[in-house]
């Protein structure tokens, strides 16, 4: 009987050590779910979700503190992707956070700009170029359309403008057929 107890104890200790070692050796740094959620979010860093940026919101979702429907720039597509990732049911966008709209960027009226640098400090992606008492301008290709620079501007010289679309970005529209009518979609 003692042999059995001894053997089992030895086995338990051996496996325990193995498990303990592998837990240290193969430790996953960071939360992979957060990364996956962050990869889905549109990275506008606009804060409309109520968090300080896309990463904090991703962490909140991963911790179960926030729902998946608080990202207006992402809209339906992001909610669907998050639902697929987390195995939840898609829910409509939370109206409190805002409405989904086509992507826009901002434009600085360079005639009016006084060079106060407040917008530069507000821009989460460093998309504004300028220096104190120098004209500022937006780098169009880097602007995410978060509109965070509009509120700090003391002379209201920042406007929202639609994204310029040229032929290379044109998309074929969804075909308009009888099948696309709402009642057909239900079936």
């Amino acid at each position: 009987m003692f042999e059995a107890i001894f053997v089992l104890t030895a086995l338990a200790i051996a496996f325990g050590l193995l498990l303990g070692y592998s837990a240290i050796r193969f430790k996953v740094k960071g939360d992979p779910v957060t990364d996956k959620i962050d990869a889905i979010l549109p990275q506008t860093q606009c804060g409309q979700c109520g968090y300080a940026g896309c990463r904090p919101y991703a962490e909140a979702i991963a911790n179960g503190e926030a729902d998946i429907n608080q990202c207006p720039p992402g809209g339906k597509v992001v909610i669907q992707a998050l639902a697929d990732l987390l195995g939840r049911d898609p829910v409509p966008l939370n109206e409190e956070n805002g409405q989904h709209a086509e992507k826009t960027i901002v434009h600085i009226d360079e005639q009016l700009c006084i060079g106060c640098t407040l917008c530069i400090q507000a821009c989460p992606v460093d998309a504004i170029l300028g220096a104190a008492k120098q004209m500022h301008t937006i780098i169009d290709s880097e602007c995410t359309g978060c509109n965070l620079c509009i509120a700090p501007c003391p002379v209201d010289c920042i406007y929202i403008v639609p994204v310029k679309r040229d032929i290379s970005q044109w998309r074929w529209p969804r075909p308009e057929t009888e099948l696309e009518k709402p009642e057909a979609d239900k079936s």
Binding site: D38, L41, Q43, Q45, C54, V125, D126, E142
Partner: peptide, 11 residues
């Protein structure tokens, strides 16, 4: 989006 994330993280 990846570019924006990169720029945001660098900032």
């Amino acid at each position: 989006a990846d570019l924006a994330r990169q720029r945001h993280e660098f900032r």
